[in-house]
């Protein structure tokens, strides 16, 4: 049984207009996507700004209501559960946000920030609570005494680790990380990425890793889905997608990554020009008249592409 299965998920935002705020149309932020996560893996969601990555993540943890489709966590449809069951299952999915500066309440001590989710679900004595928070804060590599400090006393990377500690308090099984390192410097980025890998084995976590940075996705993910305008254009094992991209949009994304080897400069430019030409010439092969991608088609056990 798959750990998480998403079937034909659609999330439309209403566009309202006029004085009566009538709904005049919809932004199809997520438009019929299906994918699954296996236990313990890291699944990457990539695509350009506005393609629906954040919307997908927020729908999975229940911050946004799905317009259609089902989300099965360990075989249970989250939408069909009653309230008690749902809140029980919601614990299993936690989220890490992009901006470590604004996602932590500056007026609260680290202790309160991390303990907050526990307080909603469990009744612990202050001592037990403190011990638990200290255990977590040590696990994310901070000094146990730092639970009495405030967020502004920490660096960006440390703050992001506090955010991760908070996400870990309820022993989640799935963590949705929405651009967890985009706001951080390269060296701090490295710190957080390493750390996420460390705790993955320790806490047996499954990650849904959202990013627009393909370098980081390649580093972190076992499988990836490439999103374009609310749909998947390609999906499969990370290596296959990077080494053998099939969809023109994927090719374009990959060729756009700057190469860290100055000697490959010319090669990279040529590749880009080549892909760009192909992109212009073969548009119809990959997109329908409305500019939408076709449904995914399986081309191997671990690779699907949206072509006719």
């Amino acid at each position: 049984m798959e750990f998480l299965k998403v079937n034909h998920l659609k999330v439309y935002y209403p566009i309202r207009s006029g004085f009566f705020r009538r709904v005049v149309g919809h932004v199809k932020a997520v438009d019929d996507i299906s994918f699954q996560l296996n236990r313990g893996e890291t699944y990457g969601l990539v695509g350009e700004s506005g393609c629906g990555k954040t919307t997908t993540g927020r729908t999975l943890i229940g911050l946004i209501k799905a317009t259609a489709g089902e989300i099965l966590l360990e075989g249970k449809d989250l939408a069909k559960l009653n309230r008690r069951e749902r809140s029980y299952h919601r614990k299993d999915i936690q989220m890490i946000f992009q901006d470590p500066y604004s996602s932590l309440n500056p007026k609260k001590r680290v202790l309160d920030i991390i303990a907050e989710p526990i307080r909603n679900f469990e009744k612990l004595s202050p001592q037990e609570e403190k011990r638990k928070v200290q255990y977590l804060i040590e696990r994310v590599g901070l000094h146990p005494d730092s639970i009495y400090k405030y967020p502004h006393e920490f660096s960006g990377g440390q703050r992001q680790r506090i955010g991760i500690a908070r996400a870990l308090t309820l022993h989640p099984k799935l963590i949705i990380a929405d651009e967890p390192v985009s706001a951080l410097d390269v060296s701090v980025q490295a710190q957080v990425l390493n750390f996420m890998k460390d705790i993955q084995t320790e806490f047996q976590l499954t990650y849904l890793f959202i990013s627009h940075d393909l370098g980081i996705i390649r580093h972190m993910c076992d499988r990836i889905g490439i999103m374009y305008r609310g749909q998947f254009v390609e999906e499969g094992a990370s290596q296959e997608i990077f080494n053998n991209p099939q969809h023109i949009y994927t090719k374009r994304l990959i060729s756009a990554i700057p190469n860290v080897d100055p000697r490959k400069k010319q090669e990279q430019i040529k590749l880009r020009q080549h892909v760009e030409k192909e992109y212009k010439l073969s548009w119809q092969r990959y997109f329908n008249a409305e500019g939408k991608a076709y449904p995914l088609k399986r081309i191997s056990d671990t690779h699907s592409v949206a072509i006719l």
Partner: peptide, 19 residues
């Protein structure tokens, strides 16, 4: 250190260097 801390295409899954 900087060069070591970015994910590389050649050695994807390797541990990154942390400054």
């Amino acid at each position: 250190s900087l060069l070591q801390s970015i994910p590389s295409a050649q050695h994807p899954k390797e541990r990154l260097h942390v400054i």
